[in-house]
Amino acid sequence: MQRPRLRIVQNDCVLANFAENLSRHIRLVEQAAADGMDAIAFPELSLTGYNVQDAAQDIAIHIEDPALEPLRKLSGDITIICGGIELSDDYGVYNAAFLFEDGDARSAHRKIYLPTYGMFEELRYFSAGQRIEAVTSRRLGKIGIGICEDFWHVSVPYLLAHQGAKLLFVLMSSPLRLTPGEAEPAIVRQWRKIISTYSFLFSTYVACINRVGNEDSFTYWGSSAVSGPDGAPIAEAPLFEEHHLDVIVDHDAVKHARLQSSHFLDEDLRLFSQELKDIS
């Protein structure tokens, strides 16, 4: 496989305005394709905004909806990963990640862990996803996608990596939670640790795409980042600013990391599966 060129976009969006957000996606995708990128990824709910509340049912969209046709057409030249509100065949409403490639569209992940504590109330408006499944991209290879809170649960990246994903995406709309007396918010440090830890333990690339901007009382902090399969940071975007990061995904780096340290390959899945059965 060639070394794919990936652009991750740290951008703002307009709450509950699908048409405007789609227009922004089209411009950014066209620019990325013109710049020679093989793939582009956007944050959580990038097509709708995060704090949609009761409007979620009204703006939920089926993956085959004609409104998504511009992204399907553009995906002939570049693979597109973005966030939206998905309407399933049985009319469930999901916080989802969409994947567009070679003119096709699919729902690549439905958010499993819906935070409903503190400032969050997702479980009031969304159904929870029920599958953890790596997907194959012609341009990127085997990838895994989680959405924000999903990566606070080690089971999600663990299963995606052991299904063969060598590049993990986490699409985020993480709002700022200030810590008095600290120059850098604790949430920023926590996410950096999560990304570095997973990339090292699973010997994979991890790409974190967080949005920026303001919605109601929420401020999104950005600082999107990519870590390599040795756990070292490759690229990081600034706080609070729209920005994009261009990285090359070198699958040989995954091979070298796993040959140098076999902790991921030595994982005893049979034992783990049996112990899970015993405690479930």
Rank of each mutant, 00 (worst) to 15 (best):
Q163H: 01
K166V: 08
I195A: 06
I40E: 02
P238T: 03
I61Y: 01
M1E: 09
C82M: 06
A134F: 06
R5M: 01
Q130P: 01
A41K: 01
L178Q: 15
K73Q: 14
E241G: 06
N95L: 11
C208S: 11
A225W: 03
V29Y: 04
I81G: 05
I145Q: 04
G84I: 10
A34I: 08
I132P: 13
P175V: 01
L140Y: 08
E121N: 14
I234Q: 06
Y91N: 15
L245K: 02
I234M: 15
D58R: 15
A134R: 03
K277F: 14
S223C: 10
L114R: 03
F200S: 07
R106V: 06
G103E: 02
E133R: 12
L6R: 10
K255V: 14
V156T: 12
L71I: 08
A134M: 05
V212K: 09
P185T: 10
E121R: 15
R189C: 08
I40N: 03
V29M: 01
A32R: 12
T136G: 04
H109D: 01
F120G: 01
I195D: 00
P4V: 05
L171N: 02
A232F: 00
S227A: 15
E121K: 07
A253P: 04
L176Q: 08
L45D: 03
C82D: 07
R192A: 13
V249L: 14
S196E: 05
L167P: 12
A183I: 13
I147G: 03
G92K: 04
K142F: 01
R177L: 14
Q130Y: 01
L114V: 03
A134D: 00
L271G: 14
F18S: 07
L160K: 04
D102L: 14
S75R: 10
F98P: 06
F42R: 10
C82Y: 03
S217C: 08
S280H: 14
D278C: 12
F126Q: 14
I194N: 01
I81Y: 11
S280T: 11
S137T: 13
H251W: 12
R24E: 12
I59V: 13
F169M: 07
R3S: 09
K193P: 02
A232N: 11
K166E: 12
F272C: 05
E133A: 14
L123N: 11
F218T: 00
D90H: 09
H162C: 07
D38Y: 11
L178H: 10
A96I: 10
R3E: 10
N11K: 14
A56H: 08
F18A: 01
H243V: 05
F98H: 10
E122I: 05
